[in-house]
Simulated scan of single mutants.
Amino acid sequence: MVACGVFLSGFVISEPAPYELLMVTQIALWFLLGLRISRAVAPLLAFLLVFNVGGILSLTVMKDLGGGPMYLAVSTFLALTSVFYAAIIEDRHQRLELIFKAWVAAAIITALLGILGYFHAFPGAEAFTLYDRAKGAFQDPNVFGPFLIAPALYLMHGLLTGKLLQAPLKVAGLLIIALGVFLSFSRAAWALFLFSAVALVFILLLKERTGAFRLKILFLSLTAVLVLVVALVVALQFEQVRNLFLDRTTLVKEYDGGHLGRFARHRIGFLMSMERPLGIGPMVFSEIFPEDEHNIWLKSLTTYGWLGFVSYVSMMVCTLAMGFRLLLRDRPWQPHLMIAWIVIIGHVGIGNVIDTDHWRHFYVLLGIVWGCCALEWRHQRASRRGGSVI
């Protein structure tokens, strides 16, 4: 059920998606059958509950509730999924491998759908595109692209540290996912992919002390870069791809820097939020301005109020600080912690230009980091008592 849930997170064409239906049932069953929230995971639950309480308070200032209650119901559900993943990982660290393998399978399939849809490979394939951009089995290319990054890093880590006999399958999967990220034409996803890949290689070079291993990492990294460059050159031979690529590589577009563009809305929105301690309510910002906030920090202020904003910022600071402190410790769960921590940092960065509070995979990443930190806490306690959780 865990693997199936993670797999279904890659297929969100409509809401409620099968992921929601399965996870609601699964979370209820696991906790009814005895899954517990430890003291190490409890702070995550507290941060997320306070975050959503801020959202509930923001409903009180809305003239017309509209879809506000449903929006916050989804937010609360996603918060519970994060706590659920942290709890089951702390209970048994072997589930991390299961989670990432299911995520890779979902990423490859949804990326293939996006690629086939982009090139109109079969009748009706355009259902997997939006505005001539691949979106796979998602509603938005800007969510589709970032969803693929963590499984891409998992495959990269396997290539850099695993056996060469398994390399062909991992290379094939990585190329499919990389092409899916590229055809999403999401600048945030491109930046996230580049940052995450560089950060992964850098941390591996720090962690591994032997010259031979470092040479292997550098050689394989350079080979991967060469292959991706060749693939990019081939893709750019298609006029449709080339034109959209040149358009998307424009650093500041009209809807970014124009009148009431993204950056102007950010400035006005932050000033407005200083006078609204309870926020303005879910989805109200887009009724005042041409589009949504497209900034997770502003979204926290407008939708979840000052209380939600402080809770969200505190949670992210604690998540990154704890993960950084444990990043290089030699544990069975270290690779999974490293991948999730890197991708969360990337999400913090792209959160400046996009809303991430309803991204299912973001809550999975949070759960992975907190679950790994809880494992370390248990390991330290067991070590003091002469045992181990490994």
Rank of each mutant, 00 (worst) to 15 (best):
L174T: 01
L174Y: 11
L174C: 01
L174E: 07
L174M: 09
L175C: 13
I176T: 09
I176N: 06
I177T: 05
I177C: 10
I177A: 09
A178R: 08
A178D: 10
A178L: 14
A178H: 13
L179P: 02
G180S: 08
G180L: 08
G180Y: 04
V181Y: 09
V181A: 12
V181W: 10
V181G: 09
F182G: 08
F182L: 15
F182P: 10
F182T: 09
L183S: 07
L183Q: 05
L183W: 02
L183P: 10
L183D: 09
S184V: 01
F185Y: 15
F185H: 06
F185M: 10
F185Q: 04
S186T: 08
R187F: 01
R187D: 03
R187M: 00
R187P: 04
R187N: 00
A188M: 13
A189D: 12
A189F: 12
A189V: 08
A189G: 15
W190C: 13
A191F: 14
A191V: 14
A191L: 15
A191Y: 07
L192Q: 11
L192S: 07
L192C: 08
L192Y: 07
L192P: 11
F193E: 13
F193P: 10
L194G: 15
L194W: 14
L194H: 08
L194V: 15
L194C: 14
L194Q: 07
F195A: 13
F195I: 11
S196A: 15
S196G: 05
S196H: 02
S196F: 06
A197H: 07
A197I: 03
A197P: 00
V198Q: 00
V198K: 00
V198C: 10
A199I: 02
A199P: 05
A199S: 10
L200T: 01
L200Y: 03
L200P: 05
L200H: 01
V201Q: 01
V201E: 05
V201D: 06
F202H: 03
F202S: 06
F202T: 01
I203D: 07
I203A: 04
L204R: 01
L205D: 00
L206W: 10
L206E: 12
L206G: 12
K207F: 12
K207T: 14
K207M: 13
E208T: 00
R209K: 15
T210G: 13
T210P: 06
G211D: 11
G211A: 12
G211H: 02
A212M: 05
A212H: 05
A212N: 03
A212T: 03
F213L: 13
F213E: 13
F213V: 10
F213R: 15
R214K: 15
L215M: 06
L215T: 02
I217D: 03
I217F: 00
F219Q: 12
F219Y: 15
